[in-house]
Every structure is written in C-alpha cells, then in structure tokens.
C-alpha cells in the first residue's frame, strides 16, 4: 500500500486513511487531510524532511514519519 511519503515531488494522489491518534494526526485532520481528499506533494525540505503538500489549496509542511502513516491511492495510470 502506498503512503504519502513515497509520493514523488509534483505528483498527486487521493487520501485513503490517516493512521494513529496523536497530536500530529489530529492537527492534520483539522487542516483538512481527510479520506477521499486529493493531495499533491509539492516537494521536500533541503535535508529531505519535512515534506510540503498541497491540500484544499493550502500548503502544509509535515514530517516524513507522519506522512508514512497516511495511506494514499495513486490515480490510474493510462
């Protein structure tokens, strides 16, 4: 199963599930990272972590450890 941290820069996907119930996950849900929502990986910080994503028109930075717990579905490749 694909997770958000494996997405290459510039690629988009759809969120399937956020795992965990910690402060970071809750904050991400409050910011609108919810199942069914499209998400784009904008890029990574110079040292490889955190990641920057685009969700609901907002840029959000989050750590790889948190992105690893977000399952995504890639758009069909054709």
């Amino acid at each position: 199963m694909e997770t958000l941290d494996s997405l290459p820069a510039g690629a988009s996907a759809t969120i399937i599930e956020l795992q965990g119930d910690d402060a970071a996950t809750r904050r991400l849900m409050e910011l609108g990272l919810l199942p069914g929502e499209p998400i784009e990986l904008i890029g990574r910080a110079p040292f490889g972590d955190p990641l920057a994503v685009l969700i609901r028109g907002t840029r959000i930075a989050l750590r790889s450890t948190d992105a690893r717990r977000i399952r995504i579905r890639l758009p069909p490749t054709d």
Binding site: A24, T58, I60, L62, R63, D66
Partner: peptide, 8 residues
C-alpha cells in the same frame, strides 16, 4: 510529543 505540522 514533538510535532511539526505547519502551514506555508
């Protein structure tokens, strides 16, 4: 815990 979730 230490978290980093931030709007850019």
């Amino acid at each position: 815990e230490s978290t980093f979730v931030m709007e850019l």
